[in-house]
Write a protein that binds this DNA or RNA. Structure first.
Lengths: 215, 215
DNA sequence: ATCCGGCTTTTGTGATCACAATTGCGCCAT
DNA sequence: ATGGCGCAATTGTGATCACAAAAGCCGGAT
């Protein structure tokens, strides 16, 4: 007989290191260009270099960290061209995810989205950049999970990961005082069953941060 | 003064292993579900387990290999749902790449595409599945390189990688006798500067293999 | 004060080892 | 012949070590 082997806690050391690093990067808790060392990560998480190396390699493969020619690891500093590309990718993938999620979006999901959206305000008042990014992404992820498209969602999360360190400085410049306008448009389009409106709202929300680069 | 440090040959061992494995997987030279061992890979490439492990981890992170709960590594066997998702991703990303490449596509590029396309016929007559996949992807990559969008191209290649082992069996069922019809449509649209036609042709070419699943 | 040289320290890489868990084979009982 | 049990071989994981290269630092010359 196979007992349930604690599916969440039975993780290897490199996986723990990977997940914690990944979370820090995705939520913009590490500044762009910050340097990391394998031994430093190892001692920070209480493991040897081996799991630290594997976690770092994995994050490099996902574009969350960049590797200098001499093997040094740091969070990437993205060029404006690359940011534009990643925003375009977010738009392409997330519009599709939202579109696929819409037919399955029942009322409980919409209420959940409204609840998440309402917590954004208090995070904003605390000037908590990482918290803002986290709640914002939770809003999107909650919607996209309904699309039942794990490969697409993984792709979208990879893009979020690559944008993580940059988002912090971007949202830092953005002196926001209220919950994002486009989130309300997304919820309204979901309620109305308005698919073109949903696609437009998601595209607008995703590319909105881009304006900070050009202006 | 900084001399050019042989940018292509100065590679670490794990990178050599990674690239060779990646090529084999992307071009469908490994059947879906095939098992791999770290020690096996190590001895095959004349290195120890350490570089083999890093190469495998990297490929797992890219979705090119799948990891069982006990850490065993194998090429993934994709469900039909996942294949549909990946095809949809190819369509989204590659249509955008083609669209961005079109304004920069001068006559030399079109001739290059025609040249690549003409070699497909002879590969087909040899019943060389891996060769067919390789030339087919080279056709697409050549076009997309002109888009000057490295992040998008990397995303597209990741999808190709995930589909690699499956493509072999897919193209195996496809008894093809001539170069793909949609490649000629792509070239014609490029020549005519017909952007909607190009988008349609790319979308059709990319999702064409999918019909083998449903019929 | 600034720039250059050499030296020390830090850092990544790859090999090897000990260990635990899983796998898979063979043997035995029915 | 078949199904289950147990042992042996295989395999992934993580730690440690030796080594080479890169980075940072300190001092001296100009």
């Amino acid at each position: 007989m196979l007992m349930n082997p604690k599916p969440d806690s039975a993780t290897s050391a490199h996986d723990r290191v990977y997940r914690r690093l990944r979370t820090q990067i995705m939520y913009g808790e590490i500044a762009p260009g910050a340097a990391l060392t394998l031994r430093g990560i190892g001692t920070e998480f209480g493991v040897s270099m081996t799991p630290a190396r594997e976690a770092v390699r994995r994050l490099v493969a996902e574009g969350a960290l960049s590797l200098s020619s001499s093997g040094r690891v740091s969070t990437p500093e993205l060029s404006n061209d690359r940011i534009e590309e990643l925003a375009a990718l977010r738009s392409l993938i997330e519009v599709e995810l939202a579109s696929r999620a819409m037919p399955r979006a029942h009322i409980a999901l919409i209420e959940r989205l409204q609840s998440i959206n309402s917590t954004i305000s208090e995070v904003i008042s605390n000037r908590d950049a990482a918290g803002y990014i986290r709640v914002n992404l939770e809003f999107h992820r909650t919607l996209y999970l309904r699309a039942q498209a794990p490969a697409m969602l993984a792709m979208a999360e990879t893009v979020w990961l690559q944008l993580g360190p940059t988002m912090r400085s971007l949202y830092g410049r953005l002196r926001r005082t209220e919950a994002p306008h486009y989130h309300r448009l997304i919820i309204a389009a979901l309620k109305a069953g308005d698919e073109p409106g949903l696609r437009l709202a998601v595209r607008s929300d995703v590319t909105q941060g881009l304006r900070l680069l050009t202006t």
